[in-house]
Amino acid sequence: MVNIVIVSHSKRLAQGLMELASQMKSDDCQIALAAGIDDPDNPIGTDAAKIMAAIEEVYSPDGVVVMVDLGSAILSAETALELLDPAISERVRISRAPLVEGTIGAVVAASGGDSLEGVLAEADLAYSLKG
């Protein structure tokens, strides 16, 4: 099954989205968070190593779709892909869809057994539907 990683600058935002997405997913679909940074005085940000660990946590040969909140999260996710074993990174896709709508679409598609490209397409569809 394709699994999902939620990347957000805010840990609280990601936790809320995970709570919402968990209501839509099957038991087999896994969601991991890579959100915020480990600085109590300034917790907002993204961390490529944290994203890499989240991808490894939920990796399956079917793939992983990474959902991101803001532009710099894309850069951190791309850096994480460069740090991963190539056998893993080739089965990971980064979606540029709106975070909430895209994540819900991705989770529903993954839970329904869609392929990696199908889950990514469903997440990305959220962009066109909202526009």
Rank of each mutant, 00 (worst) to 15 (best):
E56W: 14
S26R: 10
L75P: 02
V119S: 02
L125C: 09
G36Y: 01
M67I: 03
A87Y: 12
Q15F: 06
I94N: 00
T46P: 06
G16P: 15
A87D: 13
V7G: 00
V119H: 03
Y127F: 12
Q15H: 08
G45Y: 03
A77G: 04
G105D: 13
D124S: 13
A49R: 09
H9N: 03
P98M: 09
E82H: 15
T79L: 09
E82V: 10
S10T: 12
V92P: 00
L125V: 11
E117W: 10
S22P: 06
E56Y: 07
A87C: 14
A21D: 09
D69S: 00
G102C: 04
E19L: 09
G118A: 10
A123S: 06
M67N: 00
V5N: 06
L81R: 01
R91L: 05
L13D: 13
S8A: 12
G45V: 05
S115L: 07
M18F: 08
A110H: 15
E101Q: 06
V107S: 14
L33H: 00
M52Y: 07
G112D: 13
R93Q: 08
G71W: 06
L81I: 09
L116C: 06
A87G: 13
A14I: 09
G102L: 01
L120V: 06
I4S: 01
G36K: 00
V119W: 02
T46A: 06
K50H: 07
A110R: 02
M52I: 03
D85W: 08
A14V: 06
L17H: 02
I74S: 11
K11E: 15
G113R: 07
S95Q: 07
T46W: 02
P86C: 12
Y127N: 10
S10A: 14
S95V: 05
E90R: 06
N3T: 06
L129N: 10
S60H: 12
I4Q: 05
P98L: 08
A35C: 03
E101M: 10
Y59G: 08
N3H: 05
K25Y: 15
S115V: 12
K11G: 12
A97V: 04
T79V: 11
L84V: 07
S95L: 08
L99K: 00
G112C: 12
C29S: 14
R93W: 07
A48H: 05
A77V: 03
E122D: 09
D47H: 02
D62V: 11
V7S: 00
V7F: 04
P86S: 11
L33K: 00
